[in-house]
Design a protein around this nucleic acid. Sequence first.
DNA 1: GCCGTTTTCGGCCCGACTGTTTTCAGTCG
Length: 588
Amino acid sequence: MTNRQIAEKLRHMAVFYEMDGVPFRPQAYEKAADAIDALGPDEPLDRLFAAKGRDGLRTVPGVGEGIAHHIEEMIRRGTFREYERMAAKYPVNLDELSGIEGVGPKTIKTLYQKLRIKDLAGLERAAAAGKIRGLPRFGAKTEANLIRSIELRRRSAGRRLLGDILPLARRIETELRGVRGVRHAVVAGSIRRRQETIGDIDILATAAGPERVMEKFIRLPEVAEVLEHGPTKTAVRLDNGVQADLRVIPEASYGAALQYFTGSKEHNVIVRKLAIARGLKLNEYGLWKSRKSVAARSEEDVYRAVGLDYIEPELRTASGEIEAAAAGGLPDLIPYGSVRGDLQVQTDWTDGSHSIADMAEAARRRGLEYLAVTDHTKALAMVGGLDEKKLARQGREIDALNRRLEKDGVNFRVLKGSEVDILRDGSLDLADAALKKLDMVGAAVHSHFHLSRSEQTARIIRAMKNPHVDIIFHPTGRVINKREPCDFDMEAVIKAAKATGTALEIDAAPDRLDLKDSHVRLAVRAGVKLVIDSDAHRPEHFDWLELGVAVARRGWAATKDVLNTGSYRDLKKWLSKAKNKREKGPRK
DNA sequence: GCCGTTTTCGGCCCGACTGTTTTCAGTCG
C-alpha cells in the first residue's frame, strides 16, 4: 500500500468522524495524512514499518499509538477495522460528494440518512426532483446552488488538472523511451500545449519495432484496461480514469505527426489552409507536393515550408499566433526555469506545513535565489492568520534567518511579505503601519466572492491604490472545477494596475492558475508587470512554478514581463520604485 | 487522537459568511 493510499484512507476517516460530530479526531487524522503525504513515495511507510516496526511509524509527526495501529493494519491487509466499520455505516462516495462546493461532512450524512444519497448521480437526481429543499436546514436556494455546483462539475467532467497529469505523462514518456528500438517518445496534445485542463494523454513514438513499445505501453502498472490495441495505435484507460493513446509513426514523419497531434485542432485547420494556398497538403505523415513529401522530419521544417516561424506549442490556440508567425512577430517567450524567486509562500506560521527556514532551504535547493514569506492575515482566522503583533514577530525571525544566510555566504534571501486580506470594501485587514514594515505586500480576495461586478471591481482597485500593496494575488479567486472566478472588470483592473504600478500574480497552484492565459495576454499588452508564484504550502509545491511559467507562455509573456525573473536586487529596486510612484500618485 | 521551552492531562477548532432559521449549523481554507 502506497503512502498516498494510506493518507487517503486516513482522510476519509477524518470525514467519517466529522460526520458523526466527533471532536478533535478529524484534525488529528487530517494532520497525520498530511504528514504521510509529505513523506512522498520515496519513503514508503511499509518499508519504515518493516525496518522499525510500529515505533518507526510513530516517528512520523501526527502519528501516535492509535493511528500507527491503523497504518500497521493497512500495510497488512489494505484497510483497517475502524475504517470498515464507518464505511459500512456510511456506504457513500466521499470524494465525489465532497468534491461539490458547499457539500461537507454533515451534508453528506444528512443526504445519506434522509435520502439514501450515495454519490453524485444520486445527489443530482434528488436535486432535480426537488427533494433536497425538504431536508432540515435546506431550502430552495441551497438546492439551486447544489444544482449549479454539480453542473460546473459536469462541465469539467473528464478534464483533469494539468498539474495532476503532467508528472504521470512524463513517467510514461520515460518508460517508453527506455524500450529497445524507440527513437522518440513524446507527449503531444493538450499536455504539450500546457493547457490548464487535460482530457486525455496523447503519446507519439517512433520505433524500429512498434510491437515492443505497444507491449510495454499496455503493461504499464497504471493501465487498468486496454481499449484498443493495434500496430500503430493503442488506447488504454489508466487506473485514474484517464484515457491514454499511443501512436507509433515512421521516423520520417515525426515532425509532421508531432505537429498534427499537438493541435489545437483550430490551429491545425489554419495551418492546413496555408498549405493548401501553397498547393500543398498537410497531414500527420508529412507536408506533400502531390506525392512527394517536402517537409516532415521536424516541426520547424513543416512550419517553415508553409511560410511560418516556429510556433511554440503553448501558443497554438488559433488566437493570432499564425498571423504573428507569418509576420515574424512572435513574442520571445519566457523560458521554463527562468523564475528566480517565489513571492507567495506559506509557512507553519499559518496553514503551511514547514518552517520559514525549511521552505527557504527547499527553494534554494530548487535553484531559487529568494522567496517572500506571505502568510495569511487575521481576517482568515481559519488558518490562524497573523495580526500585526505576530507579523512583527515573524519579521524578526526572517531578519535573523537572513543574517544567518549572509554570514554563511548563502546566496539566498527571504523577503518579509504578507498575503493580506482585501475586505469587502477594498480596505485591508492589517494596519498600514504594519504593512509599511514589510518588504512586499500581496493582497488577495478570500471572501465576498459574489459581489456585483461594479462593487467587486471597485473593491480590487481600491486595494491597489493602497501604496503598500505591491501585488494582487490570485486575482480572480477561481478554483478550477470548483469555484467560478469573481465577476469584475478585468480590463479596468489591469488599467488600474498599470496606473498604480501594482503587479498581478499568476498563482501557479494547479487548481488556480490565476491569472489565466487570456488575462495574462491582456496584462502583457497593457504593460502590466506579472509575478509567477507557487503559492507553496509545502516544499514540493515549488515544482508548481513550472505550471505558472506555462500560463505566462500561453499568455505571450516574455522574461521582461515577469518581475521575479530578475535578481533579488532588481526586484527590490522595482518594489521601491513602484511604491514611490503610488505614494506620490494622485489619491482618490 | 496527538502533543509537550504552557508536558503526561488538558488543550486543540482561531472567525466570517450563507442560508436557514428566529438563534445557529455547516462550510470555507
